[in-house]
Amino acid sequence: MDNNVIVSLKNIVVDFDDQIILNGLSLDIHDKEFVTFLGPSGCGKTTTLRVIGGFVEPKSGNVFFNGQDIAGLPPYKRQVNTVFQKYALFPHLNVFENVAFGLRLKKTEEREVRRRVLEMLEVVGLKGFERRNIATLSGGQQQRVAIARGLVNQPKVLLLDEPLGALDLKLRKEMQLELKRLQREMDITFVYVTHDQEEALTMSDTVVVMKDGLIQQIGSPEDIYNEPENAFVAEFIGESNILDGLMLRDFCVEFAGNEFACVDKGFARNQLVQVVVRPEDIKVVSPIQGQLTGLVREVIFKGVHFEMHVEQGGFEWIIHSTQASQPGEVIGMCIGPDEIHIMARTED
C-alpha cells in the first residue's frame, strides 16, 4: 500500500497572523485515488490543498511528492495542477488559448498543442467551443474549461478547490458524475475540497474529514457514514441522533433508559460512550412493540421521506420514515443491533 503514495504530508503547521490554520497535519494520498477534504469553512481544507499546490508555505513540516521533499518548490515547478474556486480563467484568451496556456509555456510543438487541446476539449464536452470568448460561456462551461486547462498538462495530481460551489444543484450533480468519470478515464489522482458532505460521499474513494486544522477521520465514504469516529463526524456527515450511553458489556449498551443489543465490543465494562443512530435506521412500530415509545412533535414532508421529530425521555429524536405519523401521536421505535454505532465519548 505504501509504495503507491503520491503525496505525503508530514506534521504540516500553517499559521496566518498567529492564528493556527493547520495544526500538525499528516496525511498520505495514494496514486489514482479520488480524495476529498471535507469540513466546515475555516477547517483548513483549502489551506491543505494550497500547501500541496505550493501556494502556501508551511511554517513547519514536509511535503513529499513521489517520495521527494518539495517544500520550497514554487507552484510552477510542481507536477500538480489546480482547478480554482472561481475558475480563474484568462479573460483575454479564448477557450483554446486558455487550455493551451500550460502547453505553450512548456514550448510544446504547435501541432501537438492543437492535438492535445482539441482532444481535451472533447473529453470535457466542449468540442466546437475553441474560438469562443470566455465571457460568453455559462458557469458550467467555464468550469469545464478550467478542468481541461489543468488536465491537458497531464499532471500526476489534479487539485480541485470547491469547483462546483457556484453552480446550481442540477448542474452540480451532473458535474459530480462527470468529474468521477474524468478521474477514472485520465487515471490520475484527484484531490477535491468541499464542504458538501453529499458531494464528498458521491465522488470519493477516500474522505478526509477535517475540523480546526486537524483530521477527524480518514476513510471510505461508507466507513465515514456508518462508523464515524466521533460526534463531530457523525453530525457533519448527514443527520444523526447522538446520545450518551453506557456500555454494560460486550454487545450490550444502555441508552435512552433502555438496554439494546449491539455489535460493538472491546469497550471496558460500564464505559461511558456515545451512541449514533441514523434517522433512517429507526423503525416506527406500534407503542406496545417498540423498544422505546415517544410522542410525535412535528412531521415534515421531505419528498423521498417524512422527517419526524419525536420526544422521548427529554431527548428529541429525528426519524426518517416513508410513512407519516400524526403530530401528537404516540409511537413505538425499534433499533436493530446493526443500526447502533458506538463511539468512545469525547470531551466537547
Binding site: G53, Y76, F84, Q85, K86, A88, L89, F90
Partner: peptide
Amino acid sequence: SIIEAAQDLGAGMGKIVTRV
C-alpha cells in the same frame, strides 16, 4: 487567483508579466 492559475500552469514571474 488568475495570477496563481498562471503560476500553477508553469509561468514564472517573467511569463506572468508578459502573458497575463
